[in-house]
Amino acid sequence: MGAQEILVVILFIAALIYVGNMIYKNFNAKKSCGSNCKCGIDFSDLPDPEKK
């Protein structure tokens, strides 16, 4: 293998790792947040839409 082929293989593997990491973070973030967890945001000063 020539130097250019080795460089292309290394860049391809790095791109696969990068895309795999992005996909992993995308699915991992969806699992960590529940439907009503509020994610650390304080909503106490907003009016409750259920109370009329």
Rank of each mutant, 00 (worst) to 15 (best):
S35C: 08
V9F: 12
G40T: 10
I6S: 03
A15Y: 04
S32I: 06
G40R: 04
C37L: 07
I41K: 12
K30G: 07
Y24A: 15
C37P: 07
C37M: 05
N36E: 06
I41A: 10
G34N: 06
N28W: 04
D42R: 11
L46V: 09
L46H: 14
C37Q: 09
A15I: 11
Q4I: 02
V19W: 00
S35R: 11
L46S: 13
I17V: 03
I17Q: 04
I6Y: 00
I17W: 03
Q4H: 03
C39M: 05
N26W: 15
A14P: 02
Y18L: 13
S32D: 13
L7R: 12
V9N: 09
S35K: 10
C37Y: 05
L16I: 06
Q4R: 09
V8T: 14
G40L: 12
G34L: 02
E50T: 08
I10W: 08
Y18I: 09
L11M: 01
E5V: 07
K51R: 15
N36P: 00
N26T: 15
V9P: 05
G20D: 06
G20P: 02
P47A: 14
N28R: 12
L7H: 02
A14M: 12
Y24T: 10
D45R: 03
L11I: 06
A15F: 00
M22R: 14
L7Y: 05
K30F: 01
C33V: 08
P49A: 10
M1T: 01
F12Y: 01
I10E: 08
Y18H: 10
K52D: 14
A29E: 00
